Amino acid sequence: MPVPSPATIAELRETLRAIEGDGHRRRETLPFGVADMDSRLADGGLRLDGLHEVAAKGADMCDDSAATLFMAGIAARAWGPILWVVRRRDLFAPGLYQAGLSPERVLYAEARDDAEVLALMEEGLRHRGLGAVIGEVKRAAMPATRRLQLAAEGGRTIALLLRRHAREDADPLALPSAALTRWRIASAPSVPLRCGSMGRPRWAVSLVRQRGGDPFDTLLEACDDTGRLALPAALGDRSRAPGRASPRTNAAA
Results as ranks from 00 to 15, higher is better:
residue 1 M to P: 13
residue 1 M to R: 14
residue 7 A to G: 05
residue 10 A to V: 02
residue 10 A to H: 06
residue 15 T to F: 12
residue 17 R to A: 15
residue 18 A to C: 11
residue 22 D to K: 11
residue 23 G to C: 11
residue 24 H to I: 12
residue 25 R to T: 15
residue 25 R to M: 12
residue 27 R to M: 13
residue 40 R to M: 08
residue 45 G to W: 01
residue 48 L to Y: 00
residue 52 H to I: 00
residue 54 V to L: 12
residue 57 K to G: 14
residue 65 S to T: 05
residue 72 A to R: 01
residue 74 I to P: 01
residue 77 R to F: 09
residue 82 I to M: 15
residue 83 L to T: 04
residue 98 Q to R: 15
residue 102 S to T: 10
residue 104 E to I: 00
residue 106 V to C: 04
residue 113 D to N: 15
residue 114 D to F: 13
residue 116 E to G: 04
residue 116 E to C: 03
residue 117 V to T: 04
residue 121 M to F: 01
residue 123 E to G: 00
residue 129 G to I: 00
residue 129 G to P: 07
residue 137 V to L: 06
residue 137 V to F: 08
residue 141 A to E: 15
residue 143 P to S: 12
residue 144 A to Y: 11
residue 145 T to P: 14
residue 151 A to K: 02
residue 152 A to H: 02
residue 158 I to N: 03
residue 164 R to G: 14
residue 165 H to D: 08
residue 167 R to V: 01
residue 170 A to P: 06
residue 172 P to W: 06
residue 177 S to W: 06
residue 178 A to H: 10
residue 181 T to D: 10
residue 188 A to P: 13
residue 189 P to W: 12
residue 191 V to H: 13
residue 194 R to T: 14
residue 196 G to N: 09
residue 196 G to Y: 08
residue 197 S to A: 15
residue 200 R to L: 10
residue 202 R to S: 08
residue 203 W to L: 09
residue 205 V to T: 09
residue 211 R to Y: 09
residue 212 G to T: 05
residue 220 L to H: 04
residue 220 L to E: 03
residue 220 L to I: 04
residue 221 E to C: 05
residue 224 D to Y: 07
residue 225 D to W: 05
residue 228 R to C: 10
residue 235 L to R: 07
residue 237 D to M: 06
residue 241 A to V: 02
residue 243 G to L: 02
residue 243 G to M: 01
residue 245 A to W: 08
residue 250 N to F: 08
residue 253 A to E: 14
